[in-house]
Computed example of a mutant assay.
Amino acid sequence: MRFAKFAAVGLAIALSGCIDMDMDTAILGPDQARLSGHIEVSREMFDMMGGEADFCPAEEGGTLELTDTLARCNMLLEGTFAEVFTENEDGSPSPTATDLGDGTVRVTFPMGDMTSDMDEMTADPQMAAMFRPMVEGHSISISVSGAEIVSTNGTLSDDGRRAVISFELVELFEDQPDVPEVFEAVVRY
Rank of each mutant, 00 (worst) to 15 (best):
K5C: 02
A26M: 08
M134D: 10
R34A: 15
C56K: 08
R43L: 03
D124N: 15
S141F: 01
G91M: 05
V150L: 01
A163S: 15
E52F: 00
V170Q: 10
A71H: 00
L15Q: 13
P57K: 13
A123Y: 06
M111I: 15
S94G: 15
G137M: 00
M130T: 08
R43S: 10
A82D: 14
M23F: 14
A147G: 03
I13D: 11
E174T: 14
G10I: 01
T152R: 02
I19E: 13
A53Y: 00
I27Y: 07
S92D: 05
T155C: 06
R2S: 10
T63H: 02
A53F: 00
T80G: 14
S145I: 08
L156H: 08
T98P: 06
D20N: 13
E65I: 00
M75E: 00
D20K: 07
S143Y: 03
L11I: 01
M127A: 14
P125A: 13
G154Q: 09
A12L: 02
G10N: 10
V144P: 04
D47I: 05
S157Q: 09
P30E: 07
S151Y: 00
H138T: 06
A147M: 02
Q176M: 10
I39R: 13
V107K: 03
E181T: 15
P30D: 11
C18T: 06
S141D: 06
A8D: 13
F3V: 01
D175T: 12
F81Q: 04
G154H: 09
C56P: 11
S116C: 09
M48T: 15
V150Q: 00
V105Y: 07
I19A: 14
E184W: 02
I149A: 04
C56Q: 07
C73G: 09
I165H: 15
L77F: 01
T152H: 05
A7R: 13
A97Q: 07
A12G: 11
A14Q: 01
E65W: 00
D119Y: 14
V9E: 15
A33Q: 04
D90C: 01
E181I: 08
T152V: 07
S42Y: 07
D175F: 05
G112M: 14
G91A: 06
D31I: 04
F46R: 01
D158T: 15
R162C: 06
M130V: 05
G61C: 02
P125F: 10
S16M: 12
I13L: 14
E87W: 05
N153I: 06
T115Y: 15
E83Q: 13
